[in-house]
Amino acid sequence: MSIKTIAGVDINVNDEGYMEDASQWTKEIAKEIAKEEGVELSDKHFEVIEFVRGKVAAGEGLTIRGIGKSGVVNAKEFYALFPGAPLKKATKISGVPKPTSCI
């Protein structure tokens, strides 16, 4: 665990840069992390982030399939919003732990 200053706030992050305390998350922090990941956040991104944070808060697992069926975005749009590794990027930006799902 280490402390990283994001958007002027000291945040606890793990070795891979994932936030360790989801309650420290703010939209400004999300924008900063997104910039590091090469993503410019739009309103649509924040809708996905809200869904992701809601799922994690409810203790439910995250999968690309689940996000694709969320009604917020379909799988293709999700890949387009967070190019490359969408589930990893979206969770990192959402301030929640890295998902452990294989699908």
Binding site: T63, G68, K76
Partner: peptide, 17 residues
């Protein structure tokens, strides 16, 4: 376990490129 049927799995794969 949220593992999709084959047709949906193929769609998921192509959705990601």
């Amino acid at each position: 376990l949220d593992i999709p049927p084959v047709d949906e799995f193929l769609e998921l794969i192509t959705a990601g490129g």
